[in-house]
Nucleic acid binder design. Structure first.
Lengths: 150, 150
DNA sequence: CCTTGACCTTCCAATCACTGGAACGATTAC
DNA sequence: GTAATCGTTCCAGTGATTGGAAGGTCAAGG
């Protein structure tokens, strides 16, 4: 099996397979006399594992650890769960951050007429001298993160 | 006002101010005889605009456009709104993607005992030969994206 | 044997928005 | 005078790819 066939079988591009090898995520593949990389069905299995993990947003670093546990038949499921929980926590944090951005922006967008006139609450928020005024501007309708002072 | 003072006043690090200048996001600052960059309160205002826009997740490319509109007193609010809506759409798309990842993972985490034993639904999902089986594994409790065939 | 095309190889560069550091010059305070 | 703090430029790295250039290899057909 050469790299193109392994790519098709795993769904990981040949380019990416070489990259994974270069960073040590997968072991160096065997070679033919001409220098072509050679892959086994087991290699393809690992590549599919990586692809699925990447689809779930796991970083390469965590995938390395997951592969280690996958190969270790004496692993504890607690170790695997811990890695997954780290990742879930990161995901939730990023989601919350983006949710806040989106909510603020949608308030501003709603307040913007979106017509030929230049007046625009979005620019007013961005250009606000006072960073707190920017928050006020956004949370006039429904308060999101309350600055209780005042 | 030198770059350190502008950094303090704007909340944008000196390093980042130089970077913004290097990519053309802000105009080249004036210089003292010794080559030190010099900033005006107006420059600081722009830096704060950029900082607020970055906090809301706008890309540098969109911030360039927003600054252009900000300076253009004949702009239409519709143009500003359009840029904001592009960004909101991207945010929502990314949030949805991460929400799906997190939901799938939390199902797997819930199904994992997290004890000393090696058996683990998380690894089983990642190592699934059949990519559809991976979905099934995750959606056994509550189905997320139904594969209706079968 | 030669060509054509599809494959493989390596290496370099770009993405995005920074951040860090090295190596060195200027200013300021004591 | 000198030490600390600031400023300068330039280079490199981050994460996870993707693209391209330049060249070697393989299989098929004439």
């Amino acid at each position: 099996m050469n790299i193109g066939q392994a790519a098709k079988a795993s769904g990981v591009s040949a380019k990416l397979i070489r990259y994974y090898e270069s960073i040590g995520l997968i072991p160096e593949a065997g070679r033919t006399a001409a220098g072509y990389r050679v892959y086994t069905p087991q290699d393809v299995h690992i590549l599919r594992f990586i692809k699925r993990a990447r689809t779930l947003g796991f970083s390469i670093e965590r995938i390395e650890r997951l592969i280690g546990l996958w190969r270790d038949k004496d692993r504890s499921s607690a170790e695997v769960k811990a890695i997954a929980l780290e990742h879930v926590a990161e995901l939730e944090a990023k989601i919350a951050e983006m949710r806040a951005m989106s909510d603020t922006l949608r308030e501003l967008v709603n307040a913007c007429h979106g017509d030929h006139r230049p007046d625009c609450p979005i620019l007013r928020d961005l250009a606000a001298d006072d960073p707190v005024a920017a928050d006020d501007q956004a949370s006039r309708k429904g308060r999101v993160a309350g600055a209780s002072a005042g």
